[in-house]
Each structure stands twice: as C-alpha cells, then as structure tokens.
C-alpha cells in the first residue's frame, strides 16, 4: 500500500494555502505534519479526505480497494467530534459503526477507549476530552487503512494519549498509514515529518 502526492496545491477563498507539495508514505508508516498555524495542515488533510478540491497536483493511492475513493478508505478526525448531543454515547458510536460498515460493535469500541461506563449517558454531558475519546472509538470500530488525524492529541489527558499511541502503533503494525497534523509529539516512531509553511 502506498499513498503519495505530487505537486499538490490548495486554494481557499482565493488565497493559495500551499503549492508544489510532494510526499509519499508506505504501509506501516506515519507522516506527522508540522508547521505554523495557517500553513495548511488541516487543508491538506481535508484535501486527502476528499472534502476539499485540489487546485493542482495529483494524489495516488496504490494497494487499496480500486473501486473506492481515498476518502472512503480513510478515517478523518477533524476538529469537530461529529457527535449528536441528543443521543447517548453508545447510540453515537453505534450509529457510525453501522453507517460506515464497521466491524466492531459499539460497546466494544467504547471499552477500547475507556468510555464503556458512560455508554448510556447523553453525549451532551461529556467533557471535551471525553468527546475526543468517543471520536477515537470510531477509529477502532471501523477498519480503514488510512488515518487522517487533525491534532489528535488536542484536549486528551495522559491516559487517553497512551490509548491513542497504542492505537496508532497497532494500526501501523497491521500495515496502516497515518498522516497526522500535530504540535505535540505523537508517541510513535516516524521516519520523517512533512513541514508546511511559506518560509521553506
């Protein structure tokens, strides 16, 4: 499995966020994205997820399922947690697990992120960190080879960070790919990082 980008450019609101961007990573590799605010880390992730059109360049994903787009084989963990506050914790994760054809039942995914005791609590009562944990449950409930993570460490406490690191190591060991925008160290080994920013 191999994911690469050549000459990628992204335009938002008439402004060129980045251009001429190249990267490639293989199965089992992680690519941290670093750079100052506004350098286009989030835009690159959304572009890879298929949520933003690329202004130029091409993305190649080899070894995945040929009839599916990259976005359909990727997990995207954005700044929003995609939770409905009216639903309980279990109802939230079970919905995504069914809707995205997950392989793990909702309560097993909750156990994996340490939220099983809150299964029947409405998501409205969760703290920011607990909401984030619930988003992480999606990563284990549904098997997708590419993980696009936007500041995955944000508002996570130590124990949750450990869970996340273990999840990422596991994913890489199984031959997954991770691209993560981050300010803090991810707690996994990565060969190199991709630094975004106009001052290149």
């Amino acid at each position: 499995m191999m994911l690469s980008g050549k000459g990628l450019a992204c335009q938002r609101g008439g402004r060129m966020v980045f251009s001429g961007l190249d990267f490639s990573l293989r199965a089992g590799q992680a690519l941290p994205l670093t750079g100052p605010n506004g350098a286009g880390k989030s835009s690159l992730l959304r572009l890879l997820a298929g949520l933003l059109p690329a202004a130029a360049g091409r993305i190649d994903f080899k070894g995945g399922s040929p009839e599916r787009s990259l976005g359909e084989q990727a997990h995207y963990l954005g700044h929003q947690d995609a939770l409905k506050t009216q639903l309980t914790v279990l109802e939230n994760i079970s919905f995504w697990a069914s809707y995205m054809r997950g392989t793990l039942a909702g309560d097993d995914a909750l156990t994996a992120v340490g939220l099983c005791e809150l299964a029947n609590v409405p998501a409205a009562y969760l703290s920011a960190g607990q909401r984030r944990r619930l988003s992480l449950a999606r990563l284990v409930a549904i098997q997708r080879p590419v993980w696009l993570l936007d500041e995955p460490n944000a508002s996570l406490d130590d124990s949750a960070q450990k869970i996340l690191s273990a999840m990422m190591r596991d994913h890489l060991k199984r031959g997954g790919l991770i691209i993560a925008a981050t300010h803090a160290p991810l707690g996994i080994k990565s060969a190199r990082e991709l630094r975004l920013g106009r001052a290149r």
Binding site: L118, N120, G129, Q130, L156
Partner: peptide, 11 residues
C-alpha cells in the same frame, strides 16, 4: 447523576 458520572469518569 449522569452528569456526575461523566464528570467522575476519565478524560
């Protein structure tokens, strides 16, 4: 009680 449970839990 549910809010307390959420408060008492990790994260």
């Amino acid at each position: 009680l549910q809010m307390m449970k959420a408060l008492g839990a990790r994260g």
